[in-house]
Amino acid sequence: CHSECLGNCSQPDDPTKCVACRNFYLDGRCVETCPPPYYHFQDWRCVNFSFCQDLHHKCKNSRRQGCHQYVIHNNKCIPECPSGYTMNSSNLLCTPCLGPCPKVCHLLEGEKTIDSVTSAQELRGCTVINGSLIINIRGGNNLAAELEANLGLIEEISGYLKIRRSYALVSLSFFRKLRLIRGETLEIGNYSFYALDNQNLRQLWDWSKHNLTITQGKLFFHYNPKLCLSEIHKMEEVSGTKGRQERNDIALKTNGDQASCENELLKFSYIRTSFDKILLRWEPYWPPDFRDLLGFMLFYKEAPYQNVTEFDGQDACGSNSWTVVDIDPPLRSNDPKSQNHPGWLMRGLKPWTQYAIFVKTLVTFSDERRTYGAKSDIIYVQTDATNPSVPLDPISVSNSSSQIILKWKPPSDPNGNITHYLVFWERQAEDSELFELDYCLKGLKLPSRTWSPPFESEDSQKHNQSEYEDSAGECCSCPKTDSQILKELEESSFRKTFEDYLHNVVFVPRKT
């Protein structure tokens, strides 16, 4: 048989008469490798580009789960590009990614509803959504962080984005990388972005840091009482949809009607710091009717980097990364020049730590249904340095008659930039024990000054392991946590139920 035959053949030295091919099969003959313009397919066939392209389009058009959109890589027609490569849609070739590779997620039936953290986790790592997304989240724990972890990498949506009755959302900033909504599939009414009845939605994105392009379709905003109209108009300008909307697409009466839409800028007039305090004062603000001013709200939190936005980490279910302080308005003076500047002394802060701070007014709604208010920009203030805590785990070892090696770990709280350490030492008198000992005694162990690591005695271990207080009263049991108490109650309830079950099964009433 021919060298490319495997198993047997019907005619000697003829690659077209093989029972099976050793390498690849091409047009009725066995070959060692697939010549151009053919590609290896499933490690035994040679196919042309049209064959591989037909497989790709067949799966793409069917949208069946589990099928493969075949691509070409290293002269092979394979189910998908290997790690580190992405497909070129024009020629199906796998090309190296520039940075992290995109991950295209194809949605069944063309859309997916995100109504819980669990459903959001199914899209973790996706960068391109081939379909439409509907966000409908009523509640949950730590929602802002969970949504950002699972949806934060999405850069492109081919269909539309719909935010509907998501009472738990305060902001859409968890879509931190969303840059493009194509609108290839539109919501009824030709809408590519749809926001309806979101009672706590206050911000779409921080438009000073976020760009969003909507290729096709219109915007729809109705019944978002805490979303200011200025935020919607800003989205029109940034996304390129200005002029597409009709009169009733953006409701003037049901958007922002319960919001404090600040239209003035508060400026800080005085800032002073110490290692654990920050004193702030800002310019006074009074609405047209000074009785509408209820006070100020001061927001602050630790910020290692200057990239904080107002609604980071917030949701309507209680999660809030900001510390909020309510401040009463100052006494009002008739003389504008003698107006008191409101302020606040922030206490209990960490030394040498940068804080993000902003302040906003708290006002009631005027009778004319106009909203007044003022808010400052987010500023960054760093507390002063102070003395560091003591170095940890000092170790001293003498390696000769004239040297001592000293080692330690950095302090747990540096409280500033540590530039150097101060080492103090003092000579001590020799131990009298060394002169009084009889060095001729056998088995004498000389006193040693070398360091030995501390260890816990058996008594201390027994005390720590004991669940009861000892007789001397030195140790006591740790208080039980809520989960331990709940577990004990469940076990007790189970024992009672099981005992009742045994009584009912074992003891049967005697027939009379």
Rank of each mutant, 00 (worst) to 15 (best):
K103L: 08
V104H: 08
V104W: 11
C105R: 00
H106E: 15
H106V: 11
G110D: 05
D115H: 04
T118I: 03
T118N: 03
S119K: 06
A120R: 02
A120L: 07
A120Y: 11
Q121W: 15
Q121T: 06
R124Y: 02
C126M: 01
C126P: 08
C126R: 00
I129M: 06
G131W: 00
G131R: 00
S132H: 02
S132P: 01
L133P: 00
R138C: 13
R138W: 00
R138H: 03
G139L: 09
G139C: 04
G139V: 14
G140P: 12
N142L: 05
L143N: 03
A144V: 10
E146P: 15
E146D: 05
E146W: 11
L147H: 03
A149T: 11
L153M: 10
L153F: 11
E155S: 05
I157F: 02
G159H: 02
G159M: 15
Y160F: 11
Y160M: 14
L161A: 05
S166K: 00
S166N: 04
Y167P: 12
L169S: 10
V170K: 06
L172Y: 02
S173C: 09
S173T: 07
F174R: 01
F175D: 00
R176T: 15
R176C: 06
K177M: 03
L178S: 01
L178E: 00
R179C: 13
L180V: 11
E187H: 07
G189T: 08
G189A: 07
Y191P: 10
F193I: 09
Y194P: 01
Y194V: 10
A195S: 11
A195E: 00
L196G: 09
D197T: 07
N198P: 00
Q199D: 15
N200A: 03
L201A: 05
L201T: 03
Q203A: 13
W205P: 01
D206M: 06
D206S: 09
W207I: 05
W207R: 04
S208Y: 10
K209L: 08
K209D: 02
K209C: 12
K209H: 09
H210R: 15
H210P: 02
N211Y: 05
N211F: 02
N211T: 10
L212T: 14
I214M: 06
I214K: 01
I214G: 01
I214F: 15
I214V: 11
T215W: 01
Q216P: 02
G217Q: 05
L219S: 09
L219R: 03
F221L: 07
K226R: 10
K226V: 13
K226D: 05
L227A: 03
L227P: 00
C228Y: 03
S230H: 01
E231N: 04
H233L: 02
K234M: 00
K234Q: 06
M235I: 13
E236G: 04
E236W: 15
E237S: 07
V238N: 15
S239Q: 11
S239A: 10
T241Y: 08
T241E: 13
G243S: 07
R244I: 07
Q245Y: 12
Q245F: 03
E246M: 12
E246Q: 15
E246R: 08
R247D: 07
N248E: 15
I250P: 06
I250E: 15
A251E: 11
A251M: 04
L252E: 04
T254Q: 13
T254H: 12
N255A: 12
N255F: 08
G256R: 08
A259T: 11
S260P: 12
C261S: 03
C261N: 03
C261F: 03
E262P: 06
N263A: 07
N263G: 15
N263Y: 10
N263T: 08
S269C: 11
I271M: 05
R272V: 01
T273L: 02
D276V: 01
D276R: 01
L279H: 14
L280N: 01
L280Y: 01
W282Q: 10
E283R: 14
P284K: 15
P284C: 14
P284I: 02
W286S: 06
W286P: 15
W286A: 04
P287R: 07
P288T: 09
D289G: 14
R291W: 15
L293G: 09
L293P: 06
L293S: 04
L294H: 13
L294G: 15
G295H: 07
F296E: 02
M297A: 06
M297N: 15
L298H: 00
L298Y: 01
Y300D: 00
K301I: 08
E302L: 05
E302I: 07
A303E: 03
Q306T: 15
Q306V: 12
Q306A: 09
V308H: 01
V308K: 07
T309P: 01
F311Q: 13
D312S: 08
Q314H: 04
D315V: 14
S319C: 11
W322V: 09
W322C: 02
V324H: 15
V324F: 10
V325M: 13
V325G: 03
V325C: 15
D328A: 09
D328H: 06
P330K: 07
P330E: 15
N334G: 05
D335H: 05
K337G: 09
K337S: 04
S338I: 03
S338K: 06
S338A: 11
Q339W: 06
Q339T: 08
Q339H: 11
N340T: 12
H341C: 07
P342V: 06
W344S: 12
M346N: 02
M346W: 02
M346Q: 05
G348K: 01
L349G: 01
L349S: 02
P351F: 06
W352G: 02
T353M: 03
T353R: 07
Q354H: 11
A356I: 08
I357F: 15
V359R: 01
T361F: 15
V363D: 11
T364A: 15
E368S: 09
R369M: 10
T371A: 05
T371L: 11
T371F: 05
G373F: 15
A374L: 14
S376R: 00
S376D: 00
I378L: 14
I379D: 01
Y380A: 02
Y380Q: 04
V381L: 15
V381M: 13
Q382W: 13
Q382N: 12
T383N: 00
T386A: 15
T386V: 14
S389N: 14
S389T: 14
P391S: 02
D393P: 04
D393K: 15
P394H: 05
V397R: 05
S398I: 15
S398T: 15
N399F: 11
S402V: 15
Q403K: 01
